[in-house]
Design a binder for these strands. Structure first.
Lengths: 148, 148
DNA sequence: CTTGAAAGACTAGTCGG
DNA sequence: CCGACTAGTCTTTCAAG
């Protein structure tokens, strides 16, 4: 993982469909050299994969919320993960410091579907209570800006 | 935006570097037909682009936090966005319901850098006070699962 | 890492339902 | 309007230097 790898990763974050030759022109390498490095970055797990960025609004997933989850007693992170993973509305989940045990990021089509998802979260046997915060507008959302 | 488009988007979310021919085999279209639909999805904004998914740990961005931002008086979302946008540690930001005006998602190399970023957020003239929640572990993080 | 070559993919143009 | 087909060009990918 040297500076050249970092620049390759930056290129791919900016556009995952750019060709190896294009990346090579930016970083000063030939296309096969770039490919070998990308393959290695995928094998070592630095690059997890390539995905399309979709507009949630356009797909009818315009409503989201952050939910603080407070668990009953002591529950391991692995168990929380196992219970949340089957819910498709769960976009992300984190264990955190503070009063709550976890923060869950939910995304749904509308308020109604969000409520349904929330009820499913609240219905999990490990969950004691939840505190929800509904998102009014997405101000900012950007790729994890690597390398800089 | 019909069921075929949704399946194409699903394919690209799963792997943004798959070829049009591969996608075509899945959805039952020829490669040029798939390309035309992808071009249209890009033009209409349903697809915003293609990006690489990087492991934040591997790049030395292992520490993150969610920060509730409470503003002084009434501040427009646009102004909040304008102040947060220059900070590279800000991965995402949302205006929300509840007591806080916004939730800011920060990502940094370590606790020290996170503290520096937090101080920069707290130093903004629009910010009254903040409530931070540090992430202990990422339980789950997945693409927005379109189409389903 | 680079070069070179063969296989395959991209994409514009054209035609048919 | 949307999809299939074809042909030229570019990309990928392997091997050898």
């Amino acid at each position: 993982m040297n500076p050249i790898d970092q620049r390759i990763v930056s290129c791919l974050v900016a556009n995952a469909r750019s060709s190896y030759a294009e990346i090579g022109k930016v970083v000063g390498l030939s296309a096969p050299a770039v490919k070998r490095r990308v393959d290695r970055l995928l094998e070592t797990g630095v690059l997890r994969g390539f995905t399309a960025v979709v507009d949630p609004e356009a797909l009818g997933w315009g409503t989201e919320a952050f939910v603080e989850v407070h668990c009953r007693g002591n529950v391991s992170p692995a168990r929380i993960r196992a219970r949340l993973e089957p819910l498709p509305e769960v976009v992300a989940a984190y264990t955190v410091t503070g009063a709550a045990d976890a923060i869950v990021h939910l995304r749904a089509a509308d308020i109604g579907q969000l409520e349904t998802a929330l009820e499913r979260v609240r219905g999990l046997e490990i969950v004691d209570r939840t505190v929800s915060t509904v998102v009014l507008s997405r101000l900012l959302e950007r790729p994890p800006t690597p390398g800089t």
